[in-house]
C-alpha cells in the first residue's frame, strides 16, 4: 500500500492479572479506509481498541501513531486530542444535556478550563452543529434532553459527536448493535463515506454487515492476528472457518 500509515501496532500485549487478552497483535492502518476487525468472542478485539485509545495500558509492544507518537505512553484525553475518536459498544452520551449541548461539547475546540469558561457558540458553530444534526437524522430534536432519545437515536448522536471531534482515526465498537436493518444500512453507508478521508476501525459481529461494507477485514483469534484480507479471502480461509466452526462446535456441546 502506498497510502501513508497512521497507526502501526507492533507486538502489542495486554494482560489482565496474568490473563493475556491480547498477545503480540500487529495492526497497520493507512490514513484512510474502513477496516473491520472480526473474530470469535474473547479474541481481544475490544481490548485492542481499548489499548489504542488508552483505556488500557499494553504491557508490551508499541502503538505508533503517525509513525512518531507512542500512544501507549499517553493518557486518554491526550490521545483523543491527537485525533483518535472512540465509540463504545453501549451508547454513551450525556443524558441530562440537550442534544445540541452534547454536540457542542464534542466539537473540535480548545478544551482547557479558561477556554470553555469564555467559549461562545458562534454562528459558524451553530451551522456546523445544524448540519451534523441533519446528517444524523436528529434535525428538529436539538433541544431535547439526550436521555429521552431512543436507543438508535443515541447511537446516532454519539456517532455525530465523534464526527464533530474530527478524528483522524475512528474506533467503533459494534456501532450497529441494536439498530434496525434500515438504520444498520444507513450506518454502513455513513461509515464508508467518512472513511474516505480518515481511518476507521470497526469491531463487528454482524457478518452480513461486514460483507456488505468491508474492503479489508482483520481476523483476530486468541489475542493474535489470524489473517488479513478481503472478505472473500477471509471466507475462503480454512483457519478462519475452523476458528468460527470450532466455536460453533463448542457451543453445541
Amino acid at each position: 500500500m502506498s497510502d501513508p500509515v497512521i497507526l502501526r501496532c507492533e507486538d502489542v500485549t495486554v494482560s489482565f492479572d496474568g490473563f493475556k487478552a491480547v498477545q503480540g497483535m500487529n495492526l497497520v492502518l493507512g490514513k484512510s479506509g474502513l477496516r473491520f476487525l472480526i473474530g470469535p468472542n474473547g479474541a481481544g478485539k475490544t481490548t485492542m481498541l481499548d489499548a489504542i485509545c488508552g483505556k488500557v495500558k499494553p504491557s508490551g509492544g508499541s502503538i505508533l501513531y503517525r509513525e512518531e507518537i507512542d500512544l501507549a505512553k499517553r493518557k486518554e484525553h491526550q490521545i483523543a486530542e491527537l485525533g483518535v475518536g472512540r465509540k463504545f459498544q453501549a451508547p454513551s452520551i450525556f443524558p441530562s444535556l440537550s442534544v445540541e449541548e452534547n454536540l457542542e461539547l464534542a466539537m473540535r475546540q480548545d478544551r482547557g478550563i479558561t477556554a470553555t469558561l469564555r467559549a461562545k457558540l458562534r454562528a459558524a458553530d451553530r451551522k456546523l452543529i445544524g448540519a451534523r444534526l441533519e446528517s444524523i437524522g436528529l434535525g428538529g430534536k436539538q433541544k431535547l434532553r439526550a436521555g429521552s432519545l431512543s436507543h438508535g437515536e443515541k447511537q446516532w448522536l454519539e456517532i455525530g459527536m465523534m464526527l464533530l471531534q474530527e478524528p483522524s482515526l475512528l474506533l467503533l465498537d459494534e456501532p450497529a448493535a441494536g439498530m434496525t436493518d434500515r438504520e444498520t444500512e444507513k450506518t454502513g453507508v455513513l461509515l464508508q463515506e467518512i472513511a474516505r478521508d480518515r481511518a476507521v476501525v470497526v469491531v463487528e459481529h454482524d457478518m452480513e454487515f461486514v460483507r456488505n461494507f468491508a474492503s479489508i477485514v482483520t481476523v483476530m483469534h486468541e489475542g493474535r492476528l489470524l489473517m488479513e484480507g478481503t472478505m472473500d479471502q477471509v471466507q475462503a480461509d480454512e483457519r478462519v472457518a475452523e476458528v468460527y466452526l470450532g466455536k460453533r462446535r463448542e457451543a453445541a456441546c
Binding site: H77, S92, L105, I113, T116
Partner: peptide, 25 residues
C-alpha cells in the same frame, strides 16, 4: 451557563465519555 458548566454536567453524566472527547476531567 457557560460551556465550562456544560462540561461539569457532562462529567456528572459520564466522566469517561468526557475523557474520550479530549477533556481532562
Amino acid at each position: 451557563k457557560s460551556r465550562f458548566g456544560k462540561v461539569l454536567r457532562a462529567i456528572r453524566d459520564g466522566e469517561n465519555r468526557v475523557r474520550f472527547l479530549g477533556y481532562n476531567p
